[in-house]
Design a protein around this nucleic acid. Structure first.
Lengths: 329, 329
DNA sequence: TATTATAATAACAACGTTGTTATTACGAAA
DNA sequence: TTTCGTAATAACAACGTTGTTATTATAATA
């Protein structure tokens, strides 16, 4: 049987309510007594009973994470980061890999304090509600939950501006044009608008549909592009995985990055630096996203509010070694 | 405020202890009353309070999963499968991506009922113990926990036997020879022994060290192999990711699989079928591993035992389209 | 010195369950 | 008709906390 506050009370010669207060660092108990109780608790190896605590405080100290698709590299990193953030706050994380709606039901049963969603498709009905704050991230207010706005368009502006600065005019965007994925659409539109804004030429070759988010999709799209007669001097990959595929395809055709072609990838995750060619990238750093999502959620928890909030995050451009001035360095 | 059994009791005109018994399907309450109580509970949208239940039963209905490395494809699949198994049993899963020891400490605080580990490195001190059953999987009894023995050697026997049957004699094994990874070592030894057993030639080219488990490691190892003058007629990839790299490297050199070279991959996960070439594979199917791990854990839970148990699982060979009879179609 | 304010601690109810014990009602046996 | 056994239900303690209220000891005030 585990040690309880009553055992500590007996050992320390005080009442158990005093122990409770002492361990919660209440000002209602004398510093001396407090210290002694802490001492005894430590010696006895006391571990608080979460169930009891939860029963009376109605806080489960648990955050649910909904993660319907397990396979994107960005996501693995984000999960790890979120887990770190959550543990920093002495909460724990419970994971569901089921569809959003059923995950929400599950989490309701578990009385989680809050929920983090990342759902690539964002195909939630706006009617979905939950008895706890929910934070997601991505492209826009697609539902009633709070979210961290990643401002994909801004990232694309950054990328295009940077490439133009280096003298590039013919730039292609390689990404997934799926109509159900809002995030990908935003990247597309951001690229399109940036090209217009900077007065750069747009033609069919400017947009290359990978029709998927796996590295192989990017690989094949690039291969297809390379078969055409006129080639851009730079490409933008819409995600880490797609960019990995682009790099692969380029190298196979013995095009040297960045001499023969520059490339910028979306997604600021550490893995960008460990690709075959360290990739210059744009996007909100994944760790910052994790921090922002978590702090938004905990702010709502503290405020006891379920209203929808938005926090916008700025994209950053990190220079590595995949871009060069046009016509030789 | 949520509905409790007391609310139901009032509404149904019985005592709350009767409600508790009725909802737990106790034989101590009349079928008629039982039915009425269930009815009322349903109407009122009753959700049991886990904290209260846990407080009295000392069961958290939660399984901890330790998953220190988030990036291997096999692992993502296994997590999903395990999650499914656990939910089938009305338990929930809590995830830790921290090192084993600190995860165990975390789970102790949370009073989980049991723990599932998958730790590629298996570098646990044998002294590590836990107050709940722990199940891991892999190569052997490297610590005091129960585990599901995957019999890697048998899988390699299967692969070699199958290739020999097809007329192959020169077979290479491409895998990670890291001395700290027991599983990889078992695959290596299994291959070596199988080759000896079937009287097939062994030379330096038979063992190719990918020095890593990423697809790119397999890719580079294969490239290296392809530079040598004599080539095997078949290769065995030690994991899904490595095999993906092998396929990639082979295709780049315009070697046709399986006409020019046969390949068998270890790991029986669905993704094997969706590689560029659907791969014939050996290994215990991932879903079976998940089932076995879960059922072993729950058996121990029910028996209330923490003693170390082992369950051995047999590898299966799944034919797809990456192997051909030697010399010809 | 007697009274009052205050600081420290103790006592206890409450949270929502489960499981054990007590009470009731009713039919069977004396 | 009275007593007994039994089936059904009610009552209640317990789980380990927190937070509110009650009690004590001590110091400050009249």
């Amino acid at each position: 049987m585990a040690i309880t506050i009553k055992d500590i009370a007996k050992a320390a010669g005080v009442s158990y309510s005093t122990v409770s207060k002492a361990l919660n660092d209440s000002p209602l108990v004398q510093p001396k007594t407090k210290e002694k109780i802490h001492q005894v608790a430590r010696e006895m190896g006391y571990e608080p009973n979460f169930a009891a605590k939860q029963l009376v405080t109605k806080q489960s100290k648990t955050i649910g994470l909904i993660w319907p698709t397990l396979d994107r590299a960005t996501h693995s990193t984000l999960v790890t980061e979120l887990n770190t953030e959550i543990q920093k706050r002495e909460f724990s994380m419970i994971l569901s890999v089921n569809p959003v709606q059923s995950s929400l039901d599950l989490f309701k049963r578990f009385h989680v304090d809050g929920v983090l969603i990342f759902d690539e498709e964002n195909n939630l009905s706006p009617a979905v509600t939950a008895p706890f704050p929910v934070v997601s991230y991505g492209a826009g207010p697609h539902n009633s939950f709070s979210f961290v706005d990643l401002h994909y368009q801004e990232a694309m502006f950054q990328a295009v501006a940077y490439l133009k600065e280096l003298g590039h005019r013919d730039i292609s965007f390689i990404g997934d044009f799926s109509p159900i994925n809002l995030r990908q659409q935003e990247k597309y539109r951001g690229f399109e608008r940036a090209m217009q804004h900077f007065n750069l030429p747009i033609h069919k070759q400017s947009f290359i549909n990978s029709a998927g988010l796996e590295w192989y999709d990017g690989y094949q799209a690039t291969k297809r592009m390379l078969r055409s007669s006129t080639l851009p001097s730079a490409v933008i990959g819409a995600s880490y995985d797609i960019s990995a595929g682009i790099v692969r395809a380029l190298r196979e055709t013995s095009l040297v990055i960045p001499k023969d072609m520059s490339i910028i990838g979306y997604d600021n995750i550490p893995q960008m630096a460990t690709l075959e060619v360290p990739l210059t990238s744009v996007g909100v750093p994944i760790q910052a996203i994790a921090e922002q999502m978590t702090s938004l959620l905990f702010d709502q928890l503290e405020a006891g509010s379920t209203e929808q909030l938005t926090r916008t995050m700025s994209s950053v451009l990190i220079e590595r070694h995949s871009c060069a001035r046009v016509n030789g360095r």
